[in-house]
């Protein structure tokens, strides 16, 4: 088989993408659909802390929150996962044991991706050896912009191998790619190279996740599914901090990929502050009033 030329990846029209997004953002999610959507959102969150100032203690607090989102209101799900730097994986695994909450670790010289292959592999292996269930890697955007698509592809494939049983999320850092055409190209490369999930952003670059960029990636996942029969997950990350926006993402998934993708097996939100807004909305639906933000723990 001839080597695939990723320059021939399908083209994306920006105006058209925005038109489609507008149709989705104009939908109105009410009553039971809203309640269900909000609960689904909570269960799809990768609760994240990726700061230079992270400590074991901070990670522990977050892990507790992931399993106990708002204990005064029973029946809430846990988040899907917690997402931390590799050196906190051990602590996190210990904290979430038995809860079903997964531990995701960023790896491969997050967030820039600038390091040697050896370091990136080792970074991944250490995280996996410490018990990470999921690896969130970054692609080499420099190489991507230089047109070295094979390098980018092979690097992802090598990390995938190093992941073993851990699921691999591939961060494209769409804010650095410049055009939707390139986002589509990077999505195709990542999926071909073995990504289990494709993810928009590190959260360190603005813009992070947006609805249009997510739509481009969902369309790529759809085409890949038709081509290979393989389902790939999607994770928008960064900048999703309110419930309304989260529900719009879910509608977009539903209308692009169908109901099968509407679980945390195939869709995640990378977010740190989304959970509290969702909790506030759920409580509002329950009680009819918005409660003070101070009723929801900030950790």
């Amino acid at each position: 088989m001839a080597e695939k030329d990723y320059r021939l990846s399908p083209r994306v029209d920006q105006v058209g993408i925005q038109d489609r997004v507008d149709r989705i953002t104009k939908r109105s999610v009410k009553s039971e659909a809203k309640r269900k959507g909000l609960l689904m959102t909570l269960n799809m969150i990768d609760l994240t802390t990726l700061e230079g100032a992270d400590t074991d203690f901070k990670v522990k607090q977050m892990c507790y929150k992931a399993q106990h989102l708002h204990d005064s209101f029973p029946g809430l799900p846990t988040t899907a996962a917690v997402c931390v730097y590799p050196n906190f994986v051990k602590a996190a695994v210990n904290e979430v044991k038995g809860s079903g909450v997964k531990v995701a670790s960023v790896a491969t010289a997050f967030p820039s991706g600038h390091s040697s292959s050896e370091i990136k592999l080792l970074d991944t292996k250490i995280a996996v050896d410490n018990g990470a269930h999921e690896i969130d890697m970054v692609i080499s955007r420099g190489k991507f912009h230089s047109g070295e698509y094979n390098f980018v592809h092979d690097e992802i494939a090598a990390i995938k191998e190093a992941c073993g049983k851990a699921r691999l999320k591939v961060i494209l850092e769409t804010g650095e790619l410049g055009t939707f055409d390139k986002v589509r190209r990077a999505s195709d490369i990542a999926m071909d190279a073995g990504a289990d999930f494709i993810k928009t952003s590190t959260g360190k670059i603005s813009p992070a996740a947006t609805l249009p960029v997510t739509l481009v990636m969902l369309e790529a996942i759809k085409d890949y599914y038709y081509e290979t029969g393989k389902m790939i997950g999607m994770k928008p990350a960064g900048g999703i901090s309110n419930s309304k926006l989260a529900l719009q993402y879910l509608l977009m998934v539903k209308e692009t990929l169908g109901g099968k993708w509407l679980s945390n097996e195939w869709f995640r939100f990378g977010a740190s502050s989304l959970a509290n807004d969702v909790l506030m909305q759920i409580m509002k639906q329950e009680s009819g009033n918005y409660q003070s933000k101070d009723y929801f723990s900030k950790d």
Binding site: V29, L250, G259
Partner: peptide, 17 residues
């Protein structure tokens, strides 16, 4: 076509008149 996307879902919009 071997793969078909199923657009049915148990998450459906409620009326928003």
């Amino acid at each position: 076509m071997k793969n078909k996307i199923d657009y049915s879902s148990d998450w459906n919009l409620d009326p928003a008149p």
